[in-house]
Design a binder for these strands. Sequence first.
DNA 1: ACATTGACCTGGGAGC
DNA 2: TGCTCCCAGGTCAATG
Length: 273
Amino acid sequence: MPELPEIETIKTGLAPLVEGQMITRAIVRQRKLRWPIPSKLSKILSQQIIHKLGRRGKYLLFYCDRGCLLIHLGMSGVLTFVPQKTKLKKHDHVDICFADGSCLRLHDPRRFGCMLWTDDDPLQHKLLINLGVEPLSKKFNAKYLFMQTCKRNVSIKQLLMNNKIVVGIGNIYAAEILFKTKIHPATCANKLTLSHCNAIVRTTKVILKRAIKAGGTTFRDYRASDGKPGYFQQKLFVYGRQGEACKICDAKLQSIILGQRSTVFCPNCQDRL
DNA sequence: ACATTGACCTGGGAGC
DNA sequence: TGCTCCCAGGTCAATG
């Protein structure tokens, strides 16, 4: 389940491998992803050079000669850089083939991801234009978050996962951020003070940066592997640990459902306001 | 304008 | 063993 740190890690790892590559064709074996892959994708991409990789939220951007390829990995998407002759596995949906015999291969069992093309500025694309601020940018600050929380009647956990407000924070990091800031995930957003918002913002940046660093180390060798990053699992305090002991106070971690998503927290460390 | 719910999809685990 | 059921998750569209 790639969240922002994983996508950033993938971008960093992939950039030196694909930037400057000439695309010869694309092989699409399964078009039905979150949205259908354009039927003329191979024709569009043929003879284009990938100049630069980018990222916006959880979207990977491949800037080419005449437009941009947008890739979202959904829940289960994996990109690998392999020789074109590499044996196919189930759910290997797309190969973007390069002139040197290598290819970028998209594998996505659950098909929640997407691969789309735009001729124009990708940031103006329908799916990207309404995205919220980048959590590692200066726009994500206490004042901004407070402005958002003030007027909203949802749990702070749901707000953090709302990509119209801030992008890239999914179920894993939302839980971890709220644990670190000692805020109960069900706390109504409009109960938070500016000071709480400041703590959330600073913690978010620390945790995401640390995860990017960890992802970088576990991901270095992904060229040969299936590319699954480690989610710096040893460093998770609450996610996936319901019923286990809190690493800080030893209380039993609890799980609740917020916005149809399971949410783990420590009933002792995290106060509800 | 905001909040909520359903839909999409497969693999893996639990339970029988 | 094999079946069924349920869960995981991101995010958009439709509905309230």
